[in-house]
């Protein structure tokens, strides 16, 4: 039932299970730091894990402000960490 796929994370190929939340993978792969804030440059990671707090924002396939915690992993998705 579980399918391993490859995604592109900041130019690096990462293997992951399709359908699971991207936020959990990024928490593991990025040592919990998903972005730095626009104003203070402070590090942020997954906080609420349910799409409420907007702390785990990344760029996915060119789209800004995507909440990693509520985004399912798909084959070939391009994920970029950004300052926002």
């Amino acid at each position: 039932m579980s399918t391993l796929v490859t995604i592109d994370l900041d130019g690096r190929a990462v293997e992951a299970e399709a359908g699971r939340p991207l936020g959990a993978l990024l928490h593991r792969e990025l040592n919990a730091v998903l972005r730095h804030t626009a104003k203070d440059g402070a590090p942020r990671g997954v906080f609420c894990g349910m799409g409420v707090c907007f702390d785990c924002l990344v760029r996915v396939d060119g789209r800004e402000g995507v909440r990693a915690c509520v985004t399912p992993i798909r084959a070939g998705m391009r994920v970029e960490t950004v300052r926002s």
């Binding site: 936020g23 959990a24 593991r28 919990a32 590090p43 906080f47 349910m50």
Partner: peptide, 21 residues
């Protein structure tokens, strides 16, 4: 409380149950 690695208990539960992490 804004440091990465600090989360709600619910977030910990979802990382584990949905993400296996």
């Amino acid at each position: 409380w804004t440091l990465p690695g600090v989360m709600t208990p619910g977030a910990g539960q979802r990382l584990a149950k949905l993400g296996g992490t």
